[in-house]
């Protein structure tokens, strides 16, 4: 049990996908302009990450033991097609949910955070339950980073910032400061 909590907190805060591993930076910088949108993108990412963990566990256990060199290709193909399939099911079954998350699903299918999750979970040798917990922590950590960033950016819209620094340069510096704050979590479990 303790092990699972540790995996979750580690993926959520200490090894945050965006702020410590630099994964998923494209949506992080592209979509974090508005608070509402980033929250929904975050939830869609949690959803895709859970599917990813399921797929990669299945592939690792049943398929890739026979052909490890196909790991990368099969991860991409299987994850992308599963997400597309589930997208169609949601569209049919629950139009409301589709409107909330649907437009983001194709955007995040081959995002590096998704692929990174599959590869990290494989490298760490996680089983099914550990993999799912890891995906949940990583997804929520991504949402947390995105929402924090969106809040900061909405504030900075109001502030008077020199024209030269506006845009990506300022966003990266904000992200750097946020990331610095997150390094504070590094000692969280070392005392225990």
């Amino acid at each position: 049990m303790n092990e699972l909590v540790w995996i979750f907190v580690s993926a959520l805060l200490i090894n945050n996908f965006v702020l410590a591993y630099f994964l998923g930076l494209c949506p992080f910088l592209g979509v974090s302009g508005r608070l509402q949108t980033s929250f929904r993108l975050g939830l869609a990412t949690v959803f895709v990450m859970l599917i990813t963990a399921l797929c990669s566990w299945f592939l690792n256990t049943y398929v890739l033991v026979h052909a490890p060199y196909l790991r990368l290709i099969s991860f991409i193909v299987v994850i992308a097609s599963t997400v597309q399939f589930i997208e169609m099911v949601i569209k049919k079954a629950s139009p409301a949910l589709f409107r909330a998350l649907g437009i983001f699903l194709p955007l995040i299918t081959t995002n590096c955070a998704i692929l990174g999750l599959a590869i990290f979970a494989t490298n760490k040798g996680y089983g099914f339950v550990e993999g799912m917990i890891y995906a949940l922590g990583a997804g929520l950590g991504f949402t947390l980073a995105l929402v924090l960033m969106a809040g900061l950016r909405e504030e900075s819209e109001m502030a008077e910032v020199p024209r030269l620094i506006r845009g990506t340069a300022m966003n990266l510096i904000i992200a750097g400061i946020l990331s610095m704050a997150f390094t504070g979590f590094a000692g969280l479990f070392s005392g225990a």
């Binding site: 630099f22 030269l164 340069a169 966003n171 990266l172 992200a175 750097g176 400061i177 390094t183």
Partner: peptide
């Protein structure tokens, strides 16, 4: 040390982009 930790990556790229804007 902060420069070889993750925050340094964001800060360095941000500053380089700033230089290019200039």
């Amino acid at each position: 040390v902060i420069m070889i930790l993750p925050p340094g990556g964001f800060l360095t790229l941000g500053l380089i982009l700033l230089f290019f804007n200039w």
